[in-house]
Amino acid sequence: MFQANWTTGTVFIFLGFSHYPKVEIIIFVLCLLMYLTTLLGNIVLISITILDFHLHTPMYFFLSNLSFLDIWYTSSALTPMLVNFVSRKNTISFSGCASQMYLSLAMGSTECILLSMMAYDRYVAICNPLRYSIIMNRRLCVRIAAGSWVTGCLTALVETLSVLQLSLCGNSIINHFACEILAVLKLVCGDTSMAQLIMLVISILILPMPMLLICISYAFILTNILRISSVDGRSKAFSTCAAHLTVVVLFYGTALSMYLKPSAIDSQEIDKCMALVYAGLTPMLNPIIYSLRNKEVKVAVKKLLIRNAFNTVLISILK
């Protein structure tokens, strides 16, 4: 194999799920449905959060950030795969690959941090309800959101640059459906220990530590829930926490198994399936579990639909 630096003329070929032609069409349909559902759910959530002043609270401020993030995250991972499947090209340029790798890392890292901050917000709301508005004031919420975005984008930039400066082995075939950093790293010649060390350090900071904060927050939340005298109130709180934790386990569990698994374990096919879970499934579930099941959001959606229907009828009458 000859060595070559990354150049703007480099074109990469995705293997994707081409080894399984019978399953490939099923995966395409599922990914398309996940993507469309993710777009619809998150756009609806962002819209009602902006339009309904009753939802101008810290929780929905963070949820709208999460929705905006998930749209970009899913689009960066799934859109090129869907386009390639339809066009039957399965190729991507150097700039496209670098952009996709950076965006996926940036959005994924930001989501890890943001989910832990949302768990802290729920902890304050349930365990310190009287001081909630004082602690989670607007300035702090903006700083938390901005800090999550800046940290996620900077760590992704460091990881991406650590790989882009390495030399390729002349092989441009990526055994994945996207420019996932671990799959791209397999094309590199020479010593990759520094890039792997950087990824390990960042992965530890971005994955286990935020997840530990989430676990601690929910431990206090569950302890507080057990003190609720009402059986209905307790069961409702438990079901809400269970739903939130399901999304957290899906997202962090698959990401942890991808980025912190032992180097001896190398199954690219399993990695592809896991990537579909944290890049496609969890962004689709987030708006459903975190908000669209809430009574406040349902009321806001109904009001928005009624308002739009009324405006349409009024315009037609005036014409």
Rank of each mutant, 00 (worst) to 15 (best):
I134T: 08
I174M: 06
R122I: 06
L51C: 13
L197N: 15
I202F: 11
I71R: 02
T38L: 07
E180Y: 14
L30A: 08
G170S: 03
N171V: 04
T160M: 12
R227T: 12
L200F: 15
T79V: 15
Y73P: 07
T192W: 02
F53M: 12
M211C: 11
A279P: 02
A300S: 14
A264W: 09
T192L: 02
L114Y: 00
I43A: 13
K319A: 11
L55W: 12
S267L: 14
D271Y: 13
I288P: 03
G280D: 00
M81R: 01
C127H: 13
P210N: 05
C241V: 14
A106D: 04
L33A: 14
S235P: 05
L63K: 10
D271T: 08
F310P: 03
L66H: 06
Y123T: 07
L40F: 06
L168F: 10
L213T: 01
M258R: 09
C141T: 04
S64R: 15
F238V: 14
L40C: 10
L212P: 07
S109P: 03
C31M: 06
K261M: 11
N224T: 11
S229N: 14
S109Y: 14
A279G: 13
T254I: 09
G147C: 03
P210K: 01
Q268C: 08
I126V: 12
D52L: 02
L305D: 01
A279R: 12
R88A: 12
V124T: 07
T240W: 15
L182V: 09
Q3E: 09
T254R: 07
L82R: 01
L32E: 00
I50F: 12
Y132F: 06
N308P: 06
C97K: 03
S217A: 15
K272L: 13
G190S: 10
R88P: 02
T74S: 14
N5I: 07
G108H: 04
L105M: 15
I71C: 07
Q268F: 11
S162P: 05
I174H: 04
M118D: 00
M81S: 01
L197G: 13
N84Q: 10
M284F: 03
C97H: 04
D52K: 03
F251L: 07
M81T: 00
K186G: 02
E111Y: 01
N84A: 13
F28I: 01
V249P: 05
I206S: 10
G152S: 05
F61D: 06
L205H: 05
V23P: 00
S109Q: 12
T192I: 11
L256F: 05
N137E: 03
V184W: 01
L185N: 11
A195K: 10
R138M: 09
T246I: 01
I126W: 07
R143D: 05
S316Y: 11
R234T: 05
H19P: 01
T192E: 07
F310I: 12
L103C: 08
T37N: 03
L212G: 11
K298Q: 15
I289L: 13
F94C: 10
G170V: 03
Q3S: 04
I228T: 11
T57N: 00
T160P: 10
P262M: 04
S291D: 10
L30F: 01
P210R: 00
Y123W: 15
I306H: 13
L260C: 02
N175P: 01
L285Y: 05
A243W: 00
F68W: 08
T151M: 15
L63R: 09
L256A: 10
L154I: 12
N137A: 06
A300C: 06
T151L: 15
